[in-house]
Design a binder for these strands. Sequence first.
RNA 1: CGGGGAGUGGCGCAGUCCGGUAGCGCAUUCGCUUUGGGAGCGAAGGGUCGCAAGUUCAAAUCUUGUCUCCCCGACCA
Length: 489
Amino acid sequence: MAQKITKREKDYSQWYLDVVKEAKLAEHSPVRGCMVIRPTGMALWENMQQGLDKMFKDTGHENAYFPLFIPKSFLSKEAQHVEGFAKECAVVTHSRLKAVDGGVEVDPESKLEEELIVRPTSETIIWDTYRNWIQSYRDLPILVNQWANVVRWEMRTRLFLRTMEFLWQEGHTAHATEEEAQEETLQMLEVYRTFAEEFMAMPVTTGVKTASERFAGAVETYCIEALMQDGKALQAGTSHFLGQNFAKAFDVKFQDSDGDHKHVWATSWGVSTRLIGGLIMTHSDDQGLVIPPKLAPTQVVIVPIYRSDEERESVIEYGESIYNELKELDVRVKLDTRDNYKPGFKFAEHEAQGIPLRIAIGPRDVAKNNVELARRDTLSKSFESRDGIGDMVKNLLDIIQNDLFETAKKRQNEMTFEVNSYDEFKEVLEEKGGFIYAHWDGTPETEELIKNETKATIRCIPLNGDTTEGTCMVTGKPSKQKVLFAKSY
RNA sequence: CGGGGAGUGGCGCAGUCCGGUAGCGCAUUCGCUUUGGGAGCGAAGGGUCGCAAGUUCAAAUCUUGUCUCCCCGACCA
């Protein structure tokens, strides 16, 4: 504490790290590239989990759990998949250590016959299991989700956005028909969009990835892309149509009602703790974190202000009555009675942690039957009557939730551009950043060229975008629609 | 793996060029005063200066070796 947060315009990455640190969300661990999620960060993730989990259940899914370790041979069964993940796997080769002069070393005798891979994602181990679960069309669909941790041996890491180990959810479904699997893929994309926008108040664009950005082993990868305050895009969630690739690789067949044996159709979809990074970079300011009320572990904090013991007693009693009233209405409220910190310190701390609403009460308020209400998002303060505080708070939390989305949406609109030439593209990218819509000829070569020359990538081919035809800004070849470019995290 | 930088109390750093026996801010502990926007004053505790060897009367500082971490690129939810 007692630190000031770096200004956003001064150094965006330092600002981001300051916010994470000051909000006590997470910190670097002694293990390279990994992070420790602190209780405050975990509480936020738990709320996100809860929201997502309910949406999964509402769409017919169930939770299951599969092993952390994957036999090496499993990974090699789907060619694209192995190519995509082989370069970033943690491999377990031995099963024990032995003591050697005060230290320990790996016991060479314990070498495993087949190495185990710490899951980078669970398609392989799950599809190996599904083979046994599926015989008949009556066994389908399988609609399973798993909350888990995965490990990807990344070169460079950043708290929440890219860590070697991260927490996520991965859904893995099996279907009798292609159409049904396609529908599932799009349904889950829509679940993610809804969660991002309605819970996180983070506007996103939905679309399809180009072949080069596609998930290893997928036929089609759909995604939600969000825009951060520094003008860079963040891939916030993906939903993959896997076709029959994994069913063929793991020989998963079912006998259909017509008697034929067929390979099943698959999807997988996931979001991770990266969403927390997205949340921070969407709403937070130079005072610290801003959390939308729906996800905030604490929605309202009451800060009592007093000098003498007599004042303390009456102010806290007043605070407790407000606390109880809000508690009755299921508002997640805290009364900050810590005696060893001054109000100013508490204000700053709660702001850094992003608590949406603060109620400050002192002797003056007790006398006048008032409260001071302060909104975290706008940092505005107002005096209100204590009577009817419950409804007022409930109402205000809804307004804050809504305003956060509107503000973020407006900013995203202001940072979204359409260009018609490559020069214009480079100019906008250089001077403004943000989302840029432009025509592209559909070839990986042109995509690669643009990436190499400008660092911008095609974030997605928008699903509900403008489908006016045109010509590629680089090659002049025909283009079916403008696609979404941006520099990204 | 290529290019840069850094290792000094819990955290962040100064000191290194030009050797003289370790200091600052924050945090911690105690006391008093404070409490409507990150408190003030006084006192206290805490460091084999990454590791190893060498030069020297004397090394955080010079030499050599070695280890680790961070940043920029290739990779990526």
